[in-house]
Design a protein around this nucleic acid. Structure first.
Lengths: 339, 339
DNA sequence: CTTAGCACTCTCGATGTGAGAGTGCTAAAC
DNA sequence: GTTTAGCACTCTCACATCGAGAGTGCTAAG
């Protein structure tokens, strides 16, 4: 890819910025009249023709202004964009909201989704952090009815999971407590495989508890599926590109599909990824872009968050918001969940 | 309201059923040709004119077929509708799916939403059951870091809630366990106000635990706000009435609004309510109908579930589905959560 | 290399038109 | 009295036409 001249870069940037603003194709005349270039519309036309030949711009039809291509957006995001940082006021606002919230993951996630949606004017998604290597911290068995037992498991770090278990024959609470004690005495601090190795020679019911516990530990590793928080869908559906319902539908579908997020958002913690126009992999999302990041503590517990909007999204704000919120969430996970 | 003649009822029913099917105004000729009435289109026209005068039908314009009014739908739902029951196959399918799922409220809720959406071809909403009068079953305090404590509370019936608590000065796990024990010895089986009355003379930190516990018990009473499961949005947005994005937006907005559901779905357990065209109270939902019910055990724990679709929704299926799923969920709550 | 000028293309909104669907009304038939 | 056939009328919808406007590409001159 040959380098663009400074003027070409400037023109490309202007086209994209105006298009993001107005959602209508931008013509040479409008750019010339803005005065920032000091050249005539004819010159701009020539440059635009070159940019089009290089694949950064297109025409919807012969006599309309120019519209950025996915490649154009990519170039813009990687080289031309400025003010990726949120403003101090925005940061303050976000921090303030997080400060107000209770110390609870589900609240944060919802809050994070709301903040992302508001700041980036796109639909936001946040998945719960999943433990990479869950270690047992505490196990409790509680009889709720004669034939039903509630198992509450606290993992190292403070994540709590529960599961129910139905019995063939009644077991008293005392016996249950003894069994729980046995697990707590032997298995605290261990991961699933160590627990499996350690707990042998178990009575009938104990074996069942063990099975359920291991199952739960396995599940916690990718329970991201279930707990996903969304926000901002209604805002993004107002964008003109989603008036045609086929586009809108693709987006709503993607958001509703439970597996979608975890499929898409594979990335190391600390980097912000931008997927423009579905990037070939998600054909139905060719009108959408995603900005997302993983958050949490690598190797311990990570989740994903991001925004989904039209390719014509305000990338600067979106990237800034995703980065800032991801960092914030990482801090929270690190502060609260790691010992 | 004067009574409709049997033939008028039959015509009204046919108009509504065909309109629900086709989403296009239905004319006298089409009804006459279906052959079920044995009269000519002219007669049907006369009857339709009367039905229009009475307010059950309208014209979109002079020369289009008839469209039901909200009043027409209401009459239909209350007097004309048949097969409100799901078919045995559908019931089987639903029961089977619930049988497959794990013994876990969040799974059931998600499943219920999915089933409702599929059966009624509308958007479905399910809120978690909230405890009317939570009683403490078990309390656990776990230190996760030097300055952080995780409080896990199990309520009578098996609902588990957690909250974190940051300390001014470190407290050892032993001390924490002693405090938890104190609560468990004195307060098990009590509701919030009894606990408040019982636990007096508390040390500094104990008072804080008490406050948090009471707070949590209070919250659990209407935590419905947070935990809401949705499904079927993408399907319902495909319906022709939501091509105009303003209608669609009202619907998406309503679904995203957290308070909306709890506002709307006030009803006793065991009855299915039908709100047609927003019924004046929800002006922005004038193109939508809702079918919903409360489920659970009255006086102990109840939640709400329902579907939201165009006024032109398949009421029979929707009501049947809502009733069946609500009953199923009630049974589950009753089986698992009551002692 | 830049720019003015110009012909050309294409969209968009307004306008018009004919076919089709459905109605309301009237008068005749049962 | 109810039903029906017939007919004029109305309104939408799809389609075509048309001019204005916007924007382009090209050419030739600065």
């Amino acid at each position: 890819m040959s380098e663009l001249t400074p003027r070409q870069q400037k023109i490309l940037g202007m086209v994209i910025r105006t298009y993001i603003d107005t959602a209508t194709p931008v013509g040479s005349k409008a750019l010339a009249e803005s005065g920032e270039l000091g050249v005539s519309s004819a010159t701009i036309r020539n440059e635009m023709a070159i940019l089009e030949e290089l694949g950064y711009l297109t025409h919807p039809h012969t006599s309309a202004g120019r519209v950025p291509t996915d490649k154009g957006y990519r170039y813009f995001v990687e080289r031309l964009m400025d003010d990726i940082e949120l403003t101090p006021e925005e940061k303050n606002m976000v921090r303030h909201q997080f400060h107000q919230a209770r110390l609870e993951m589900s609240q944060w996630m919802q809050l994070a989704a709301a903040v992302l949606a508001r700041l980036s004017r796109s639909a936001a998604l946040v998945t719960a952090p999943k433990l990479e290597q869950p270690r047992l911290r505490h196990l409790e068995l509680i009889s709720t009815q004669s034939q039903l037992v509630l198992m509450v498991v606290v993992f190292q770090g403070g994540l709590v999971r529960q599961r129910m278990l139905s019995l063939r024959e009644p077991i008293t609470q005392d016996v249950l407590s003894q069994i729980a004690d046995k697990f707590n005495k032997t298995c605290v601090g261990l991961d699933a495989s160590s627990i499996r190795a350690r707990m042998t020679d178990l009575a009938d019911f104990e074996a069942e508890v063990l099975k359920l516990l291991l199952d739960l530990m396995d599940d916690s590793r990718d329970q991201a599926l279930g707990e996903v928080y969304r926000d901002g869908l209604s805002e993004v559906l107002q964008e003109p590109e989603f008036n045609r319902s086929s586009e809108a539908n693709a987006l709503v579908n993607a958001l509703e599909q439970p597996g979608f997020l975890s499929d898409v958002m594979r990335a190391p913690v600390g980097t912000v990824q931008v997927v423009i126009g579905g990037e070939g992999r998600w054909r139905e999302l060719s009108a959408c872009s995603m900005v997302f990041a993983r958050y949490g503590v690598e190797g311990f517990a990570t989740g994903a968050l991001g925004v989904l909007g039209p390719t014509r999204m305000p990338y600067g704000k979106a990237i800034g918001a995703v980065r800032y919120v991801a960092d914030l969430m990482s801090d929270l996970v690190s502060d609260l969940y790691t010992d």
